[in-house]
Design a protein around this nucleic acid. Structure first.
Lengths: 210, 210
DNA sequence: CGTGCGATGCTGGTATACCGAATCGGCCGA
DNA sequence: TCGGCCGATTCGGTATACCAGCATCGCACG
């Protein structure tokens, strides 16, 4: 799932690095992101940094400030609520389409992410479990075979990762993913719908706790 | 609704101009978009053109080609189908939230767009009717009071405009919008749901948009 | 006459330099 | 002491210049 970054332009490398630094908490929410500073730190010119910042703005990880520097986004409770609402709509669509359009290859990939997630969750490897959980949703979205849906999913992927890092019932989530996999494999649309609804509610209540 | 473009950077101006030229059909699908050429035509340097192209790529109006020039997007039947699916999910969410969170000011704005659309449609002013129809959906999305939803809506707005230009039952659409307005004003969630569903199915079967 | 290969030009990617606006600090006056 | 003004500095926006990869076209050779 971790895409083969074999080739990448400077812009992509800078984007990836800044994104990871933000999501890993190395750059605190609210901290300044100044093009010249970052260019100096990373040893590149301002252009790749500029491109990266724009990309991260569209991903919602960076807040641009007109005619001033950008800052690492500070998520508010309202942001989280908004994200949950949109995510729910996305996943309902993604799972519905995935059930219709599932392929043998897709199911195998999905099974792999579920297994990896269960293993990691039981081993209390939070990083691997969250990565596998994110992979699960990406594979489902891919199975939905809707280019636009996948495109929009990519733009909110970072925010999803952020959301996923906010709670920690790893085994529970993995079990739900396993149940979802079974329902998709059985082509049981109604069971998938029910599980998705439950899944969304779970994520919603948990994030309110945090 | 036409945002007050009082101030704008070169990048934004170039973006707006290219976007309009594409949507108005002045730039045919598949035609080349070369940074240096556009810079020369528009009398600016490559940077604003570069920014504009990237923006239009995220809006889905331009197809980037790695290490080669970009082209004006050619929409396929699959693209249209994808757009309809995503749009349906968006609108279900937007209308549901709009019913819950409607405000007096929002309703007044919405009423204005419906009236404008009906007037324009009856006068066979297609341009004004389509603009009003687009405004209707934007006001609904705004009333949904979900920042992320509005953000994603902005990125697919151009594609919606394209879709809207593909059919011509202007009066019918205006009437459906009026019915939707009434249901929202009555806070009748079920009627809104039913209208949205009918709207989407109808739009899909014989003509596009809602 | 066909095919393979190399040179050349086109294109986006990147670096550097300049500019105008916005900000923030200090200073002066009330 | 506080408030307003003004200048130095900071910052993103833009322009120009250079670079490396790819594609095409033409030429030479089989």
């Amino acid at each position: 799932m971790t895409e083969p970054q074999g080739f990448a332009s400077e812009s992509e490398r800078v984007t990836r690095q800044l994104r990871d630094e933000i999501l890993d908490g190395l750059r605190a929410p609210g901290s300044r992101l100044v093009e010249r500073e970052l260019a100096g730190e990373l040893g590149v010119s301002r252009i790749p940094v500029r491109d990266a910042l724009r990309q991260l703005v569209t991903e919602g990880l960076v807040t641009p400030r007109p005619r001033s520097w950008a800052i690492v986004r500070e998520f508010t409770a309202a942001d989280v609520a908004d994200l949950h609402e949109v995510r729910a709509a996305f996943e309902r669509l993604a799972f519905r389409l995935a059930v219709e359009r599932r392929t043998r290859e897709g199911l195998q990939l999905l099974r792999g992410t579920v297994d990896a997630e269960l293993r990691a969750a039981r081993a209390c490897d939070a990083v691997a479990a969250r990565r596998a959980a994110a992979d699960f949703h990406e594979v489902v979205t891919a199975m939905a075979a809707n280019e636009l849906l996948n495109e929009l999913q990519r733009t909110i992927r970072s925010r999803m990762r952020w959301l996923l890092a906010q709670h920690d019932d790893l085994v529970g989530i993995a079990r739900e993913h396993e149940a979802l996999y079974d329902a998709i494999a059985d082509r049981d649309a109604e069971r998938v719908d029910a599980l998705v609804e439950g899944h969304l509610t779970l994520g919603y209540s948990h994030s309110w706790d945090a």
